[in-house]
């Protein structure tokens, strides 16, 4: 495999890791306003992701950083082109992260504000990332100078973008509900399981439409095959949740997230950002890539440190593997 292709694979893996991990913590964040009826249950939900959300989020920072290092033109076009959606992602992540950390520390009378921050900050990013990926892979008005020449409103009228937004939201919400079922005890766990079943079925339809459209445009035999996996996984997830096998359900919703992203990345390859103005102006892995030397250096770094990261991040999940129930929540501090 050439270095350029290796880095495309690595960036796809980083996005998969990001959506797999922060996917469920976005879902949990949204569920704080859906499943939890009181303060203690809300805290149960927040504490299921308490020790890990920050580490999960580093995956996106690494994905963007790796794109900058390995495909500077992809980085430049993506971030300057999707300016407003990404600005909103940043604002949402800021309020959400600060709310996690400050919620318990501020006065009780401000708590409703922090809850709103957590909810909106968890709801917007799935919609926006879905919009960005849907639009990016369906083609945007990229000129011969590699720059985006459309308007911000283009994104809202791109069918793939809108479907992407809804599919990401439904899938992450389901993933979050399954994670909640796995990590909690008592009534909140039952509520999460009840929500996960219709969640998985709605996700199945939306993800199916999204992948159908993307593959219809760009797909080959491999990406079509991979596209079937999330649909099967979601169907199985709905069944497994009903019989109470939370661990398997989580594996299945995770597989659905991973293969959905994988199918899209495989479909468009070797294009990274198709141009809807002229196919020749599309950014490809080759026109966007860094020099061979940079890729070689970065490959060494990635091969040494990525396994290490996986190891200690995995260990965190093992340390905090216990389920949390309302009785585990200490008095406010």
């Amino acid at each position: 495999m050439s270095l350029v292709n290796f880095w495309y694979l690595l960036i796809a893996v980083l996005w998969i890791g990001y959506f797999f991990l922060e996917g469920f913590d976005f879902g949990v964040g949204i569920l704080t306003q859906v499943l939890a009826r009181d303060e203690t249950n809300r805290r149960v939900l927040i504490n299921t992701i308490g020790p890990v959300w920050d580490g999960n989020e580093v995956w996106v920072i690494t994905a963007i950083g790796a794109t900058f290092a390995a495909f500077p033109n992809w980085y430049a076009t993506l971030l300057s082109g999707f300016y407003v959606p990404l600005l909103l992602v940043l604002l949402a992540l800021i309020v959400r992260n600060v709310a996690f950390e400050y919620r318990g520390k501020s006065d009780a009378r401000h708590r409703a504000w922090w809850d709103l921050c957590i909810f909106v900050g968890s709801l917007l990013p799935p919609l926006l990332w879905g919009l960005v990926f849907g639009c990016m892979f369906s083609g945007t008005k990229i000129g011969d100078d590699m720059n985006f020449h459309g308007r911000m409103s283009d994104f809202l009228t791109t069918v793939d973008g809108v479907i992407g937004a809804l599919a990401f939201l439904a899938l992450f919400l389901t993933h979050g509900a399954v994670y909640t079922a796995l990590k909690t005890r008592g009534p909140i766990r039952d509520a999460a399981r009840r929500l996960a079943v219709p969640g998985a079925l709605v996700s199945l339809v939306l993800v199916g439409v999204l992948l159908g459209r993307v593959n219809n445009h760009w797909g080959g035999p491999l990406s079509w095959t991979v596209a079937v996996v999330p649909l099967v996984a979601l169907l199985a997830c709905a069944v497994v949740v009903r019989i109470g096998r939370d661990g398997w359900a989580f594996v299945l919703s995770g597989v659905a997230v991973a293969t959905m992203v994988a199918s899209m990345f495989i479909a468009v390859f070797p294009i990274v950002m198709p141009s809807s103005l002229n196919p020749d102006w599309s950014l490809t892995v080759h026109s966007a890539a860094s020099s061979h030397y940079t890729l070689r250096v970065m490959s060494v770094v990635a091969c040494v440190f990525t396994p290490l990261v996986l190891l200690y991040q995995g260990w965190t999940y093992w340390v905090f593997r216990k389920r949390i129930g309302v009785r585990n929540i200490p008095a406010a501090h």
Binding site: G50, P51, V52, W53, D54, G55, E57, V58, I61, T62, G65, A66, T67, F68, A69, A70, P72, N73, Y75, A76, L79, M146, S290, S291, T294, V297, M298, V301, A302, F305, T306, V309, Y312, Q313, T316, V319
Partner: peptide, 29 residues
Amino acid sequence: SRFVGDIFGSPLAIEALLAFFLESTFLGL
């Protein structure tokens, strides 16, 4: 970014992979 990404992007990516993961994971712990 287009002009210097080949050079400037690497330390940023390394910063995330090597430092940010350490900081955030072990602080959570």
